[in-house]
Design a protein around this nucleic acid. Structure first.
Lengths: 187, 187
DNA sequence: ACGCACATGTAATCAGTTACATGATTCT
DNA sequence: AGAATCATGTAACTGATTACATGTGCGT
């Protein structure tokens, strides 16, 4: 069963669901999103692609173009779509990382915006919990904390607060707007 | 030479510089900071401690207390302090992770607040670069992005912006205030 | 012929987690 | 005697990075 929630494997599969690509393309796309999801090296991408192929979740097609070296275009299969949906709908994963959140949000955006809302709410809970835990730590440490510790704590509190604000406003916006002004999709 | 900038090893050493502790203590302290720096397992902490001991950067003392099981208290050595300072002052590391930033800030707070300022400025540059890169990606993708992608991009932009705001205000605050109202330390 | 951008791949290595194993002390 | 908490440790495994190795087609 689909294990390894924080892994790039399923994220790569999800990207292939959005559009068929080569390993090289995936690398560049990931680079364009940069720090948001991190960018795995080729030494990570190619083996992942091979594994997906092994499991029958994707297919390859070698495409030789006249002016450029040949590329291996990977496309998702029915089985792959099923596995992806299982992963995306996966039990909440409270306390998961920011990267995992962003990755899942990117993928879930393909299916339903109700799913997106659920993910945002999930994230909200995680951030609230983080914020709370940090406040309690500050209570406990009081003024015994060093300068660096105090700054770190403030930093955490502030960034968590900002994230919360964004989540709330986005959530409000998406809830009030059942259709979709962003995409031509839906109905 | 001090390699492995993102490693917990030096961070643990830094914590020992602030206060001598056991492996167990370190674990609990890290848990109290939670997601800010992540919390390594014992399987990571104890070997790290052994390695530091090997390198002569720390010393151990077994302390048997009457009512509790014995503990191994680790304390930093002169050599350890030197190694730590080298690590903390290390060449900028632009583009490093948030965790690395928080870890270094916590440690550098022990030495000088000029060092802290330098670190904050360093972080500022990184965040500005991230923000800019994200904006360019948005330009490039335009409205071809999926809902999930658009949200991810917005999310990144917003959180980076918030971090920048905090950095600027903290930087302003610290620059205008050369002494130290937070600590009794300084000159 | 050479270097460069594009493109794919593998092996060695590394940092960290999980699971396992041990043991002291206190409480019931 | 057994469970619970505090405390330390090791071995197997995993996920990813680094460095290496290969090859195409284009411009010079």
């Amino acid at each position: 069963m689909a294990k390894g929630a924080e892994s790039f494997r399923y994220f790569i599969l999800g990207l292939l669901a959005q559009q068929e690509m080569s390993g090289y393309d995936i690398k560049r796309f990931l680079e364009s999103l940069g720090w948001l999801v991190g960018n795995p090296s080729f030494g990570s991408i190619y083996p992942a692609l091979h594994a997906l192929l092994e499991d029958g979740l994707v297919t390859v097609e070698v495409v030789s173009r006249p002016d450029k070296p040949p590329r291996k275009i990977y496309a998702i299969t029915k089985a792959g779509e099923q596995a992806l949906q299982d992963w995306v709908a996966e039990p909440a994963t409270i306390g998961s990382s920011r990267k995992a959140f962003v990755m899942q949000m990117i993928l879930v955006g393909d299916f339903s915006q109700t799913g997106v809302i659920a993910h945002l709410q999930q994230r909200r809970e995680t951030v609230v919990a983080n914020h709370l835990a940090l406040e309690q730590t500050i209570q406990g440490m009081g003024d015994r904390a060093s300068l660096g510790q105090q700054l770190a704590l403030e930093y955490g509190l502030t960034t968590a607060g900002a994230e919360l604000t964004w989540l709330d406003s986005t959530l409000a916006q998406m809830s009030s707007d059942p259709g979709s002004d962003r995409l031509g999709t839906a109905t």
